[in-house]
Amino acid sequence: MGLDAFVYCRCWQDGLTTLCPVEPVGIDEEGYLALLLQWEGNKAAHRTFDAWQAEACPHKAMEQASEHVSNWAGVRLFQQALRAAGPEHFPTLATALPNLNGGSLPADRAAVALAELDAFARTDRITDEVELIDEATGRVLMQYVESYHGVFMFGPDYQAGVDPDGFFVLDRADPPATLFRAVRFGQRPLPGDRVELTAGGTRTVLAMRPVGTHGEPPPERLAVRSRSRSGDDFAYIVEPLRRLCAASVATGNPVMWV
């Protein structure tokens, strides 16, 4: 689950594709190259169009570029960094990424976004990021995502996460009550799918899975830290966005978010 995107090649626009065996073909209201017939009553024609599009030109599915941009948490962290840096510094990027799948970025805006991506990547200090780490190894277990209110774990009776004030566990009542909060704490798995959390001489036992397992033994000591992040730390999303925007500029076609 996450955000993907592609840019059409120019083969259809420039008359370089094989002849489509069904008609009419054009750009639909959402910006997709499509068979402009309703689905009902024309299913066979749509299947013929899909088979043609897959092999109509040297580009797979008639796409100049196709990228997995990031999972949604990565998108939100990038948007969060842009807000922290100041939207006035990256105005196009600040509004370019969608909040849901769908939509597009026109080629003229992609050209501006490409320049902003280059400037973003060169920035030595973008933001300070709040993280929950395993103290023994430094492994990052959670990151604070503002738009998720820091929540990263959900259970039948609880939700847990990290924010600038520390790691927290809340119940699922309305309004939620804080069951545990600490900046540094220990944890110990207990029988019966429970965990013991200790901090500052207090001990809390909760019916929840240990934090930071992910196929590994759960860490015993955990801490929340703030770490400075540079443009290089966001290469995971900057690089696919660069490739998409460059393809958009080269073809004049929009980036299609999917």
Results as ranks from 00 to 15, higher is better:
N101D: 08
I126L: 12
N101M: 10
R242G: 07
P217C: 08
V112K: 14
A45N: 11
R125Q: 09
A250V: 00
M62G: 04
V7N: 15
R125G: 09
G138K: 00
A173K: 13
L3K: 10
P156W: 05
G26E: 03
R227M: 11
P87L: 12
H214T: 00
H149G: 06
V238G: 10
P156M: 00
R221V: 02
G192N: 03
R242Y: 07
D118H: 08
L190H: 09
L77N: 06
D108S: 02
E220T: 08
G2E: 12
D232F: 05
C245M: 05
H149E: 15
V205F: 06
K60T: 15
F234W: 11
C11P: 02
E196Q: 13
E55G: 07
R10T: 11
V205K: 02
S104K: 15
V112L: 15
P219M: 05
T251A: 07
D128S: 12
D193W: 04
H89D: 11
R243L: 08
W12D: 04
Y144N: 05
P98R: 07
Y32H: 13
P217S: 02
P98K: 10
L77R: 14
I237D: 14
G192A: 06
V140N: 01
G161P: 00
P240L: 11
T204D: 03
D174N: 10
C9S: 13
Y158D: 05
M62P: 01
P87H: 09
L132S: 07
E67F: 04
V162R: 06
A235S: 15
L132A: 07
A96R: 09
P106F: 13
F185A: 02
L170P: 05
L36R: 11
C20Q: 12
R109K: 15
E29V: 14
G150Q: 02
A113N: 15
R225Y: 01
Q64N: 04
L33I: 10
V211Q: 03
R221K: 06
A73N: 10
V258H: 14
S248N: 02
T48A: 15
A45I: 06
G41W: 06
R188F: 06
M153Q: 05
A44K: 15
G252V: 03
V145C: 03
G102Q: 02
A182N: 06
I133T: 00
G186Q: 02
E220Q: 10
M256E: 09
D233Q: 01
L141C: 09
L19I: 12
S104A: 14
A51P: 00
V205T: 12
P58N: 08
R243A: 09
G41V: 06
E30A: 04
P98M: 00
V255K: 13
A44H: 10
A182F: 04
G186W: 00
P21Q: 03
G192H: 04
T48W: 04
H214W: 03
L117K: 13
V69Y: 14
P98C: 02
A182C: 08
L3C: 07
R242P: 07
R125N: 03
E40N: 10
V211G: 01
I27Y: 15
E29S: 13
D4E: 11
A250R: 05
P175K: 01
D124I: 02
P98D: 08
W257M: 07
A61H: 10
E30N: 09
A199M: 01
